[in-house]
Nucleic acid binder design. Structure first.
Lengths: 173, 173
DNA sequence: CTCATGTTTGACACTCCTGTTAAACATAGC
DNA sequence: GCTATGTTTAACAGGAGTGTCAAACATGAG
């Protein structure tokens, strides 16, 4: 096949993810994506269709990587504490929680659906460590809450304390 | 004093709050606010300075009303359950959680500070019902998490179930 | 009634973004 | 080396929002 893509798709999508993570779904423009990937706007339109399609591809990479790290954390001796530590490190060391920001900002149905899939998968992953689906949902909900609190207070230690409070509460009875 | 404001400030700010609540901080434009309030764009600039100042005034009204309702709920027989029921009703019956969406979307420092003040006040309000500051912070965090989950799943019953799981967990020891 | 004061209005110039297109381009397969 | 195919490029027209300004306008105070 002649007429071959001049940019590396893997690299470009990773860079696109960085841009979306940095600026958020809403205020990322095709111009930003072109700048961040080094690929001309026209080429991006040609290759993917538009912002939403690029986002979905980038989000999939994020989700895969996040779930795999979460699974690793949940295999530790103290699964919940290790999991929360991972989440808080990820949220704190940088640009906030990508999926939470997306959940709140995104309007497009396909994007909402992608976030939902991620949370569904995370819930399944958490059932063994929590003992029940309900407890798993509470943990998922708390991670989202922590992500919001990070935006407001930006204090990792405070987030860790709150996470510890939850783990203690659901471990006591 | 001559040269008097032609629009009712109270009404306009309430309508501005409606617009911000409906469209969110980011995608609300001065054009939207002019349309929603019936006040010309130029008059809004003249009277308030710009979007951020209008938002702050509107947010203060929201915060006042929210905290007063929360206080009422927390005076009930089962304070936490009643409080969560109120939060979930408020989040669910309409346009999501205004403060959470603002926390996640807003970049302007003054807006972030306003959200922080609201959460600080809510935390204080929750200490008697939860028994400790740490537990109060966990409850605040959970309400934020519920707000995010509402955006993703939009299912009130599910939110109520998760809230019940938390209340049970922090009430058991 | 008059006037000074602050308000309203519509228009202006500007910036940023979108989505498309035609022409230039690169290259795998023959 | 040609050629057909898909890619890249720069430019275009259009839409939406911003912040400002001078002129028209109301109205309380005198």
């Amino acid at each position: 096949m002649a007429g071959v893509r001049q940019f590396d798709e893997d690299t470009a999508l990773q860079q696109a993810l960085d841009v979306f993570w940095e600026r958020g779904w809403q205020s990322t423009s095709m111009v930003d994506l072109a700048a961040g990937t080094g690929v001309q706007r026209g080429s991006l339109y040609h290759a993917y269709g538009g912002k939403e399609q690029i986002f979905l591809k980038a989000f999939d990479r994020f989700a895969e990587s996040f779930l795999s790290s979460a699974a690793t954390a949940l295999a530790a001796k103290q699964p919940l504490n290790t999991f929360f530590d991972y989440c808080i490190d990820s949220i704190t060391s940088g640009r906030g929680c990508f999926s939470t920001r997306t959940a709140v900002e995104a309007d497009a149905p396909a994007v909402r659906a992608a976030v939902q899939r991620l949370l569904d998968d995370l819930e399944e992953l958490l059932i063994p460590a929590t003992g029940s689906r309900e407890a798993a949902r509470l943990v998922v909900t708390t991670t989202r809450g922590l992500a919001v609190l990070e935006r407001v207070y930006g204090d990792p230690e405070r987030l860790r304390a709150t996470a510890r409070t939850l783990v203690q509460a659901i471990s006591s009875p």
